[in-house]
Design a protein around this nucleic acid. Structure first.
Length: 147
RNA sequence: UCUAUCAGUCGGUUAUCGCUCUGUUCAUUCAGAGAGGAAAGUCCGGACAGCAAAGGGCAACAUACCGGUUAAUAGCCGGCUUCUUCAGCAAUGAAGAAAGAGAAAGUGCCACAGAAAAUAACUGUCUCUUUAAACAGAGAUGAGGGUGAAAAUGUGAGGUAAGAGCUCACGGUAUUGGUUAGUAAUAAUCAUUACGGGUAAACCUUAUGUGCUGUAAUGCCACGUAAAUCAGCGCCAUAGAGCGGCUCGUUCAAAUCAGAAAUGAUGCGUUGAAGGGUAGGCAGCAAGAUUGUGUUAGUAAUAACACAGCUAGAUAAAUGAUAACCGCUAUUGUUUUCAAUGGUUACAGAAUCCGGCUUAUGACUGAUAGAUUUU
RNA sequence: GGUCCUGUGGCCGAGUGGCUAGGCAGAGCUCUGCAAAAGCUUCCACAGCGGUUCGAAUCCGCUCGGGACCU
């Protein structure tokens, strides 16, 4: 019996780079969140739904995660879903961060887990990846338009 | 083997990438710590905090056999009584349950059925009068009347015109007063009186207790708006404010216009209202009715003492993802070893902190009880 | 975090412990040449469990769901 290979989870981690998601990278201000939901644009990618606002100012990238109690009644399940989404975002956000830093843009995202099925890490990882790719293209377009 | 109850346990190490807090560092550097028996429901009780408060009563709410326990409780422990089930001829025993004060203070309600649901009436029974007889009239009587969840203390005898606790015997239930045992509830027994249905998780009565609100309490700091709006009062001789050595001194100090005047407008001061702004930080907030072990006291709940330990603290809210090994465990094969495959879970995630209760829960171990099967 | 209210057919909604009203909707019939309207008939209910009571939708306790308020 050989060891379980990484084929199950398609993650290839570069050992030199860091994948951090600390206190500063989290969207915490109540005011900022209200603003985000008032002005932000929506993007659906099952089972995730992202709300984002892109601004031309000093570089900043903040993200938040939410699960409605409509889908999961128990706090345990909600916490589980949040953890999975956070993990998926943490492992893939570095490219986005670089590009935003180059373009000198501020982006705040809010991920909403939008399904009543218990979270599967693979799926969430994929959909989070596609969202980030789309955000990168949006950022590029905005940069060209601005310059 | 199954079921029920009680008690206990549910991981460890390493690697890669991370999260929160604390300490440390030039450094996101390094080190340490990081969910539960129910963290849940919020059903009770406290600690703590703010507000209120002379005293008393009413109201409202809660509790309700007795004793013990506790910081406190509607919890817990022990006992009493009643009821249910099982065993037994019975006496009684075992198990379980009880919101278990008062219906003899008063009011209400008791559908349908039934004469009647509590006072009586109706029907019936008996005697007398009248009459051929009946009807009728006068009087006596009190439970015989198919119902119903419930019908006026049960059986027998006496008694009477007919009957009736009207009387008697043996019982039953209860009130009051003794005696004995017990801290008490209560039990046994004696005397006495009564027998008046149920319902208080109907109103109520009696006794006891309770001020209200809750850590998003509360205190402090910072940022910010409004030096704005509306209403009341005062404005030329003293009101007021600051400082000091405080019955005083000293410094500051606020009004113009229109009008003959009353007064009005604006302005200044002051009080209040309605709105507006902020959405940050610190304390509260982690050493306590504390945890573990042992001894002693007690039937027990629990208490006392000794020794050892320090054990989460976030705020869009940490405790995660992946892999390997060890341990534990199930099945299959082989059966001392061992190998393969699988599982490592159920219920569930701290938010000021404790004590209970309730509810949700898989696997394994031990004890007790019951049932079934085999020997 | 705290304080409360509420649950009756598919929908709305009444109900002092004694057979769970009524309306809308559905089905059938009557009426009509056919429909509509109207009339008649019918179908489908007390959130769950336990207790008090002779008897609970109602009273009491627990559980589950839904909603509101404080902040």
């Amino acid at each position: 019996m050989g060891p379980k290979t990484n084929t199950r989870i398609p993650i290839s981690l570069a050992p030199t780079t860091r994948y951090q998601f600390g206190k500063k990278d989290k969207l915490k201000s109540r005011k900022a969140i209200q603003e985000l939901f008032a002005e932000g644009k929506y993007m659906n990618q099952f089972p995730l739904r992202a709300v984002y606002v892109l601004k031309h100012s000093d570089f900043q990238l903040q993200a938040g995660v939410s699960v409605s109690s409509r889908f999961f009644k128990k706090a345990v399940d909600r916490n589980r879903a949040k953890r999975v989404v956070r993990e998926a975002y943490r492992l893939q956000k570095n490219n986005l961060e670089e590009i935003l830093n180059q373009h000198n843009q501020a982006l705040s995202i809010f991920f909403i887990y939008n399904s009543n099925v218990k979270p599967d890490f693979e799926k969430v990882y994929e959909s989070c990846g596609t969202i980030i790719k789309q955000l990168i293209t949006i950022s590029n377009a905005a940069h060209q338009k601005n310059s």
